[in-house]
Design a protein around this nucleic acid. Structure first.
Lengths: 199, 199
DNA sequence: AGGTTTATTGTCAAGTCCGATAATTTTGGA
DNA sequence: TCCAAAATTATCGGACTTGACAATAAACCT
């Protein structure tokens, strides 16, 4: 009998806009005014659909974590049966795959870890899950022990993060190319993957 | 005959405070009010000694570049005559050397590249100079070509940047330790440095 | 048509931020 | 003691930000 609820659409709309503002203006720069403008809605609708700023942040962070999990799951699912590591690196450093906005959101949240309760734990999980996925993939083609896998996974994650963070500056893409080859060098130090070092 | 000028001290005071705010609150969060409070000065004194916000940012950025250059110069100068690369990695990943605030400033500026004219060029130079210094050090103990040196330098820079960015989260220091060993793996792929891979 | 639930708009109050300018005070030297 | 230059303080106006609540409009159902 009532007017149909638009909460779901509005909510998605607002969270998307918040992500964009986060990427562009950073944590403190992502004001409700800007979010509302970006979403094409009146500011009061943020309050109506989600709540105050803290609640918006909480909602965004949980959604961000879910989406990140889905993204890495998709990345893993997209790998072939053989040559997984080779393909993983191609995907990670594929200029088309690189998501500058997602990276900007990640580093904005990371930098704001001390400004919002719970953010620290969320980002810790975020990073841990990604690294675990990388280590898992590496383990499928190498007999290295867990320690070695963690080391190389840390290297891959760092190279990937750095490329995305610098994407706005790396106009020529040389950093991207160099990082990709560095990634190959690194994985080639693992037993079973030596061949990737000499392409 | 006039009253003695305090511009130099005040200026340094203000730039230091701005750096702290930048690290804590990000680019948009580093308001003049906060900077003034952090510096223990009235806001009007920022205007008196440096100027408006844009001028403050410009002043900070040039000072930041100078200090970064001095820091890397000191890093290079502190290396021994032999075993330079080994020592470089020990220094880069030394928990005591790690400067969380400096890293936070760097990523805050990097994230704000589109928000302030000239910032993009400054951060490009910042990154380029650091990578060049790394490549230079590597070249002193390896016969690898410039391309290979760039690749490994990119890897080292990425690992270092990632460790500093995650420092706030990496309570146990496991990421730091893993990253350090990944760095050793990486440099050991260069001719002349193979020994560093097996410590 | 009328009623009910929801969306949407409008508006207010308190606090923050920035630029600007006018007092006022302090300090060293004549 | 008194002057000049600089530091410091005091204030203002306009814009932005957030929280809160009231009022209006829209959609669905009976």
């Amino acid at each position: 009998m009532p007017r149909p609820s638009l909460k779901a659409e509005r909510r998605a709309q607002i969270l998307t806009a918040f992500g964009r503002c986060l990427a562009r203006y950073g944590f403190e720069g992502a004001s409700l005014e800007r979010v509302a403008e970006e979403a094409g809605l009146a500011r009061a609708l943020i309050r109506h659909n989600i709540g105050n700023r803290d609640q918006l942040i909480d909602a965004f962070v949980t959604e961000f974590l879910e989406r990140s999990r889905a993204d890495t799951a998709a990345l893993v699912a997209g790998l072939p049966k053989t040559g997984r590591v080779k393909r993983l690196i191609e995907d990670l450093f594929d200029p088309d795959y690189i998501d500058a906005e997602g990276a900007a959101i990640g580093s904005a949240l990371l930098a704001a870890v001390d400004l919002h309760p719970g953010l620290s734990a969320a980002m810790l999980a975020w990073n841990g899950e990604f690294m675990a996925a990388l280590a898992q993939i590496l383990s499928s083609e190498s007999t290295a022990d867990a320690q070695a896998l963690r080391e190389v996974a840390a290297g891959l994650a760092a190279l990937y993060a750095n490329v995305e963070a610098m994407a706005a500056i790396d106009r020529q893409g040389t950093l991207r190319a160099d990082s990709q080859r560095a990634a190959l060098r690194l994985v080639a130090t693992l037993p079973g993957l030596e061949a990737l070092g000499r392409p």
